[in-house]
Design a protein around this nucleic acid. Sequence first.
DNA 1: TCAAAAGTGTTCACCGTACACCCATGG
DNA 2: CCATGGGTGTACGGTGAACACTTTTGA
Lengths: 230, 230
Amino acid sequence: MALQNYNSEDKVLLAVDCIIFGFDGKDLKILLIKRDFEPKRGSWSLIGGFLKKEENLDAAAIRILHHLTGLHNIYMEQLYAFSKVDRDPAERTISVAYYALIDIASHDADLIQLDTAQWFSLHDAPDLIFDHDDMVNRALARLRRRALSKPIGFELLPTKFTMRQLQKLYEAILDKKLDKRNFINKFNSLGILEKLDEKDMTASRKGAFLFQFDADKYNAKVEEGFSFKL
Amino acid sequence: MALQNYNSEDKVLLAVDCIIFGFDGKDLKILLIKRDFEPKRGSWSLIGGFLKKEENLDAAAIRILHHLTGLHNIYMEQLYAFSKVDRDPAERTISVAYYALIDIASHDADLIQLDTAQWFSLHDAPDLIFDHDDMVNRALARLRRRALSKPIGFELLPTKFTMRQLQKLYEAILDKKLDKRNFINKFNSLGILEKLDEKDMTASRKGAFLFQFDADKYNAKVEEGFSFKL
DNA sequence: TCAAAAGTGTTCACCGTACACCCATGG
DNA sequence: CCATGGGTGTACGGTGAACACTTTTGA
């Protein structure tokens, strides 16, 4: 049995690649970098790095994301381990992909510093190196499923948002039009949003009320056996 | 950026551990082995092995499963990468867990050869080494979700089975009683089972009709936009 | 006064769920 | 003839989906 002798086993490089999703009010976007090193210098890729001996995978993903964006407390989830033998031509490397959700608007400034990083709408993103396109597709599929069963969408929005913004976000994630009344009724009936007195006046003359996600209400409901379903 | 120099990066051992589920007609079971080597000789653990340079993770999982069970074409899915720094006291090892579904009855003989392997009901399984209990719990959660959205349950049954067996299986997976009529009506309305002329006479005097899963019907329905929901 | 987005309810079809009795057979 | 598991249908409530008009206000 293989386990009997650790010493004779092959060791590999373990990479962590991050699919970073953002939302600009209209399109779902991903953050990519143009590689300024070999292999594949000049190609677009996900951001990534290698696992270090003294950290676990979550920590590596947090480190890599923080390094690029300067942000802490980012919503993040392990996605899948990609292991095709020749996926990285330079050396045998297994990559564990993570996907992350961040609010573009509130962090744009931090990211601008990095001239090699750029947001792309999913529709017109360039081809990526290695198997990174597979990673993006799998992340997207996961995001869609999650968005229907967990209130993770709020990670992509400012803390205060209008119902219209929330709807647009779900339309972008699910890639289909939703009915305004049904959407709002559904969310209101969940009882996890707090309606504020403020209005957002930027998008219309009438102004739209702002809401915010109430994590306490949500957690309380979950305790009672409530489960989020869009 | 870390990627700039592959050579300076830490390499790690990459293990593959398999959570093998079976069903004996009553309980959901997992297959465990008693370790006859260090570390933790004599403890129970999942079966596992190490990734080799010339194979990807799926291939490694298939190889390891085949080695233990002698079976090919096992339903299998990558679950999660476990990476706590000290999870294996002997050496820094990351483990990618896979879960597999097999039909106990038709393969019992193959497994009997291995006196160190044994089926345990989930309720009275022993504590496992390292983080293997976490792996089992995560696999179980995944299995429950999958069973509601994909017809994977059939992997755990003989090709021919009675409605009662199918119901017992779902009751075991979901760990709750289901209503006989509703369950059968639901499955029949899906139109993915073929009712055979044969009866199973082992469990009752009257005998129960046998069914089998019809993958062609299922695939045809999926093409039409049908999605399996229990 | 008008253009542009915000806000608001009802109806209907379908699905999930609860529920109880007769049937066939071997011993 | 009876004990055991097999097989069957209906009624109700709740949820998802379709659908159109009025309100506000700045230009």
